[in-house]
Write a protein that binds this DNA or RNA. Structure first.
Lengths: 342, 342
DNA sequence: CTGAAAGCGCTAACAC
DNA sequence: GTGTTAGCGCTTTCAG
């Protein structure tokens, strides 16, 4: 492998000159720049990442911890991941992927100076990784919202707002009894923040608008979906709309409703909370509150880069939810009294 | 951050001694080892990855290129990815994730000495990345089977064997007319090797066993699945079993069959080719030829590490396919003549 | 069993 | 606008 000295020699300049044409950190005359670039091309020169990291304290790598928990839809995780990777490349960074959910991995890559910054997914309300992250010298952004962010940046969809928006959207279309089919019990038990936040928003807005609201957890499986539907129908017999925040169970919830003789959207409306791709690719496309996973990943990178390059202060960014109509929410407001469907 | 010299100083030894207790590359007396370890603990010392890479030419990182192509089921990709990441940790390595499918990314991380080795997924028959990879000084293993491996290691499920096994399995159970619902046209068009290999095995075994065989490509969508089922039924009206090698379309193929009045498995048997998790989590579990994606990822890492540590020669490993019965293949061999179902 | 010291390849003062 | 050079923090001969 050619080194920077080889390049300098064949270009007839000093090593620093080569370094500076590479970094652009000082002006170089056109002729020398050209000679250097030619030498680089001829020798197929690539700076040695380790040497560069050692000298500059910059690795051009960020860590991404993407725990592949059961019950969390992998396609959603993948969206976050690609969002992060794509955005990172934009900032000349690569991504080191950690899939095991432990503080040790974060500590290893950060303390060992393998990365310039960290992005951590699937944050729980009281997440054991947060205190560690707060001690690192590299900036971190959390995807999710812990109870105590300890000075770290956070980014996520505003799930509480999404819960409210869902109820408001349905209420405005004449629905007076709505259900939320949510995350699996395991997700709730570990107090993953989004599950609790959407529920809070859902309930508070239902109360405010005097809408009857039921919530059921839902295992991410066909049988789990059937059970959830049954228990929701038992709890809220008059339910006319159901919000589903569970990508894996989503298709099964819809088919479970059908199996019980409830058509979508004539008998019961369905509003999903999921990435647009998921809502579109259902057997019948579903209206949804989009979870812009790819975007969130990209924003996480932007935030972390802003902290690195301009030591921008920490902040929390909650993306505003919006409803995308794909026809699975029925407008009942034309029907004055809940009556017999045609 | 504490450096190795800090550790040496507080332990009262030389830097090389610290280095050697860390690497274990030469014997250290118990007392000094203990003193050094204590110092390391007290200072919270972590070797600087860049410095180590510079001095040792080892980064303890491997690159994984996992192109997230449309039409390829993300959950399967994720299985490969976690297989690779988990196995890599076993060898004290981390994983740098590349998601964009280009030779440039591979060249960047390899020529820049960011990684010790590379694992490349989703190899096409005539893959443009292969010639580049062959020139790198880092060992590479391909997940998939290109036409010309150029001296690189390869690992994959034996898809040709899987195609044969599928036909043999169905034939042994009395099926004389079988279909293969395969990858999307786009996958076939880019000559992704597994799609062609399974088809070759499927056809050759059908011919050998005198079984009528039809093949249709299948877009990864509900409508694509319906279209594929229709065209298969048109081509092979008497079909009694269908092999599905398309994780995304799988549930829709099954429901399309049902919509056409064909029950599983009484009227038409279904044999999937997919990871066990996918086959199990269908609305009704499906018998399958397991695609051990996690294992393949892990084997890829083992192979690449063997080349690194023991410069083991390149080789190609094809994992033997096997059928896992989950009840979706009907045994017709008891029925002497194809007759009316009860 | 342990130490001294020469790099590894690059960046960034500091000179001119 | 360009060159010289002192590190960055580690590994690994070479000595003892």
């Amino acid at each position: 492998m050619a080194t920077i000295d080889d390049v300098a020699r064949t270009a007839g300049v000093s090593t620093s000159t080569v370094s500076y044409v590479l970094s652009g950190k000082r002006p170089i005359s056109a002729p020398t720049r050209l000679r250097v670039e030619k030498a680089i091309r001829e020798l197929g020169y690539r700076p040695h990442a380790g040497a560069r990291a050692l000298a500059s304290s910059r690795t051009q790598v960020i860590a991404l911890m993407a725990p592949l928990r059961v019950d969390v839809d992998v396609s959603v995780i993948m969206q976050f991941v690609t969002g992060v990777v794509t955005a990172a490349r934009t900032y000349e960074h690569d991504v080191l992927l950690l899939t095991q959910d432990d503080a040790a991995g974060l500590d290893r890559v950060a303390s060992g100076s393998m990365v310039d910054a960290l992005v951590v997914m699937d944050i729980e309300d009281d997440d054991p990784r947060v205190p560690l992250l707060a001690t690192l010298r590299q900036p971190t952004v959390l995807i999710g919202l812990p109870h105590e962010a300890a000075g770290l940046s956070c980014v996520d969809l505003d799930f509480e707002g999404a819960g409210r928006l869902a109820v408001r959207h349905l209420s405005a279309r004449g629905h007076r009894a709505v259900g939320l089919v949510g995350s699996p019990p395991a997700v709730l038990e570990r107090h993953t923040s989004y599950a609790e936040r959407i529920l809070r928003g859902f309930r508070s807005e239902a109360q405010a608008l005097d809408v009857q609201a039921g919530h059921v957890a839902c295992e991410s499986s066909p049988s789990g979906a059937r059970a959830a539907v049954d228990s929701l129908l038992a709890a809220v017999p008059d339910v006319t709309a159901v919000v589903v925040h569970n990508e894996v169970a989503l298709p099964f919830v819809v088919s479970a409703l059908h199996d019980r003789g409830l058509r979508t959207p004539e008998d019961v409306s369905v509003l999903a909370v999921c990435p647009p791709e998921v809502a579109e690719s259902q057997p019948v496309p579903l209206s949804s509150i989009d979870l812009p996973a790819h975007t969130i990943g990209a924003v996480a990178v932007e935030m972390v880069m802003a902290r690195l390059d301009q030591d921008h202060p920490a902040e929390t960014r909650l993306l505003t939810p919006r409803v995308v109509d794909r026809g699975s929410v029925h407008d009942r407001s034309a029907v004055p009294e809940p009556g017999v469907s045609p």
